[in-house]
Design a binder for these strands. Structure first.
Length: 484
DNA sequence: ATGTCC
């Protein structure tokens, strides 16, 4: 069966796969994309996955796909689905393996001109100080009891240990800790994998970049976010819950497959393994997922301080003299219980965002006071050779996408295809020729992360701007890249 | 994404 026969054009940036695509879809699947993106980056597997998500019990409104959609485990990456709490399900595949993977930006008061002469030194220092790559041990050793505290308290635990400032928590989504985390729901194996990984970057698309403000697209809002003139240097961090979240996802996939059969939930793909939200399996998953989310926030908080100290060392000034304030921290892999309005009525929902960033508009009570009247900063990483973006959530996001937008550029090439295509290409040199310094733990993995492997993030962000879901505030470009 | 197969 060909999905194209069932794709209906709503407008220039909204497309829907109708319920007639497959018997059993409870709602249509909606894709946010330009015709160009839809055609050239058409990922049939991912579209099929978006349609499969529409089978899940309790799903409300639409199975949603962002313009950076690509194939994932069960759910597409770039997928959003909200379920009713009373008759809905929660699915680990709807969150992803890297639970609460997310981004944060640190502002500096340095300019590109001031940083350039010490850029290589800075890249080297960051590469030394922020452990990266598969495995990898962090600077924090924790006992079992301390790991429990991290699971419950997230970023706040790190701040108390001297990694960061109390103000950092004010500009971290959910204050850097989800409620309801229960260490008793986390396996020993997950603990063992995570114990030494706090303060580590990881591998794959994770990175720590020194970036320059390239273009300001909305000056008043940029100023409110602490972004001033082009050339201002910022630090962009993208990482998650490492092996800890990965193991929790795997543990609950193993638990939910048989549970789903017991609850007699029939789905077109076993990767959509799920359990009712209001079931022992569902509740335990959400409690373990919250623990992993909090681990991810503690991880990003720890790396934040490592980066600040590296800057202070290279520029031989106290951290405070360099600014280094946190702009914001936001996750893009989670299932969160949130209050929304649907068909004019208040509704509490479990919102799965898998490779989709929360983007709440101005006035939302969950926003920090500092940003309450402008809206939530949305941090969208691109690829290491081009751009990243800062956007802001708009009211239409609440009305259509449960306050969600894209999370990045999205792949156009599989990791293997990118590796094949770029065999023999010296990517480090190619980037250096363009003024971008790359330090990678495993340079052989760099091909998988090359610009060619990704869509142009500018085109992705543009879709959401034109659709009125989010508003683009500023464009950033990389100066130095630290990768696993 | 991931001690890329306990």
């Amino acid at each position: 069966m060909d999905w194209r026969r069932f794709v209906e054009r709503i407008d220039d940036y909204r497309w829907e796969i109708s319920r007639s695509y497959k018997a059993g879809m409870r709602v249509p699947a909606r894709i946010y994309a330009s015709e160009d993106l839809l055609r050239t980056a058409a990922d049939e597997e991912a579209f099929d996955q978006a349609a499969n998500v529409a089978f899940l019990p309790g799903i409300v409104w639409r199975s949603l796909a962002m313009p950076d959609i690509h194939q994932g485990y069960g759910f597409p990456i770039g997928g959003v689905a909200a379920m009713r709490l009373d008759d809905g399900v929660v699915s680990p595949g709807g969150v992803g393996f890297d639970i609460n993977c997310g981004t944060r930006i640190l502002l500096t008061n340095l300019t590109e001109d001031a940083v350039r002469p010490r850029l290589v030194q800075l890249a080297n220092q960051l590469f030394r100080d922020v452990p990266a790559g598969l495995g990898g041990e962090g600077p924090v050793r924790v006992t079992d009891g301390e790991l429990d505290a991290i699971m419950r308290r997230g970023a706040a635990w790190m701040v108390e240990e001297g990694f960061g400032r109390a103000e950092d928590l004010e500009v971290t989504e959910s204050g850097g800790a989800l409620e309801g985390a229960d260490p008793a729901c986390v396996s020993k194996r997950a603990r063992d994998r995570g114990r030494a990984q706090l303060g580590t970057l990881g591998s794959g698309n994770h990175f720590l970049e020194v970036q320059a403000l390239d273009e300001v697209l909305d000056e008043p809002i940029a100023r409110r976010f602490g972004l001033g003139d082009p050339g201002q240097v910022v630090v962009f961090l993208h990482t998650g819950s490492r092996g800890f979240g990965h193991q929790i996802c795997q543990d609950f996939l193993d638990i939910m497959e048989p549970a789903q059969r017991r609850y007699e939930i029939e789905l077109p793909d076993r990767q959509l393994a799920c359990a009712p939200i209001d079931s022992p399996e569902g509740r335990r998953y959400l409690a373990a997922m919250a623990a992993a989310a909090n681990f991810a926030w503690a991880n990003r908080q720890c790396i934040t301080e490592l980066a600040r100290r590296a800057f202070a060392r290279v520029f031989e000034r106290p951290i405070e003299a360099l600014g280094m304030d946190l702009l914001y921290d936001v996750g893009h892999n989670s299932a969160k219980v949130e209050d929304h309005t649907f068909a004019g009525r208040p509704l509490r929902l479990c919102v799965h965002r898998k490779g989709a960033t929360r983007a709440f508009p101005a006035g939302h009570p969950e926003l920090p006071e500092r940003y309450r009247d402008v809206g939530q900063p949305v941090l969208v990483p691109g690829d290491m050779g081009r751009y990243s973006y800062v956007s802001v959530g708009l009211p239409a996001a609440m009305e259509e996408t449960w306050g969600s937008v894209c999370h990045g550029a999205g792949r156009v090439q599989s990791r293997n295809a990118a590796k094949r295509m770029l065999r023999g290409v010296d990517l480090v040199k190619r980037l250096r020729d363009r003024g971008i310094i790359v330090r990678a733990q495993n340079p052989r993995l760099l091909a998988e992360e090359a610009s060619e492997a990704y869509k142009d993030v500018s085109r992705v962000v543009e879709v959401l701007e034109h659709a009125g879901i989010s508003h683009t505030v500023a464009r950033l470009r990389p100066l130095a890249v630290v990768k696993g």
